[in-house]
């Protein structure tokens, strides 16, 4: 029979051990990706278009596509998720309708992304005739992203105390004014964390895009910003292989001589881009929170 003090020590010891193991695995993984990938990085690698058969291709187009797709997907899914979360948490009563919606969201969030991809292929690419395009990809990513984002925004709203809502109402604010002027500004940091997490998932997503945004990256003319031209970076109707899809493709069917190096380099770029996005979003979020709350 252990006394409580030893018991406590053992518990703390094992928890430290588990936490250490997790950190170790993550560091090893990250270290491997960076060590094998960073040496491949160069300005040329980051900007040049990919080559199918020859050495020396870059990932410029794929990198751009990844960001463009991320932004489009977020532009579509964030407002919908925000609206849904506000409705579910602030307005809807707890009854069978909202329970059904919540269950549906939970089921959707555990849907394998390849299923989302196939659905996107059948519905957006074929049925709506959008073809392999950024738009199809963005819609598929919206489906992929919406449940988790809605859930995380709803959780963010939940962290704001009820007394804040009562405070707003007691001043004669409508519920909508209370939500937009009191609750949302206070929830910005927490909402932002959810957005960053889901953005990372979207940025690294491959399976849902293989069948929707396609696996080819036509060369882009970065001087042409007319979204109706096929080579314009802004054109949402062109097929657009992203970085994550590129990595998958090179590893499964890459025939260029330096496939291994490109794959390593691309992985490093992916990880670094997500990291960069993270820091930038946090910085902007802090500035925004400060402006909104003068905290």
């Amino acid at each position: 029979m252990m006394n409580p003090k030893t018991q406590n020590k053992v518990a703390i010891g094992s928890l430290y051990g588990i936490a250490g193991l997790v950190v170790l695995i993550l560091m090893a993984l990250l270290g491997y990706i960076l060590v094998s990938g960073v040496p491949q990085l160069s300005w040329h690698f980051l900007t040049a278009p990919a080559k199918a058969f020859l050495e020396g291709g870059g990932v410029g187009v794929q990198l751009y596509n990844s960001f463009y797709l991320l932004i489009l997907a977020m532009l579509i899914s964030f407002p919908i998720a925000l609206g849904a979360a506000i409705y579910l948490y602030e307005y809807a009563k707890d009854n069978w309708v909202t329970t059904t919606i919540r269950t549906a969201i939970e089921i959707l969030s555990s849907l394998p992304s390849v299923v989302v991809g196939l659905f996107g292929f059948l519905f957006f690419v074929v049925r709506l005739n959008l073809g392999f395009s950024i738009l199809s990809g963005a819609f598929a990513l919206t489906f992929f992203n919406l449940p988790l984002l809605t859930r995380s925004i709803e959780d963010s709203l939940r962290t704001i105390d009820t007394t804040q809502r009562e405070g707003g109402l007691a001043l004669g604010l409508s519920r909508w004014e209370t939500i937009t002027r009191v609750i949302l500004p206070a929830a910005v940091p927490s909402i932002l964390t959810g957005v960053i997490l889901s953005a990372g998932r979207v940025f690294g997503e491959a399976a849902a895009l293989i069948y929707t945004a396609g696996q080819s990256a036509p060369a882009l003319d970065f001087t042409d910003w007319n979204p109706f031209n096929i080579s314009s970076p802004l054109n949402p109707m062109r097929p657009a292989e992203t970085l994550a899809v590129h990595i998958w493709k090179i590893n499964s069917e890459g025939i260029m001589p330096d496939a291994k190096a490109i794959s390593s380099g691309s992985s490093a770029v992916l990880v670094l881009a997500i990291l960069l996005f993270n820091f930038a979003a946090r910085y902007l979020g802090k500035r925004l929170y400060k402006r909104l709350t003068s905290a």
Partner: peptide
């Protein structure tokens, strides 16, 4: 008809 609550609830503002 204004109201003040049990727990102080200042908003996250200046």
């Amino acid at each position: 008809v204004g109201m003040v609550f049990q727990r102080p609830n200042p908003f996250a503002k200046s």
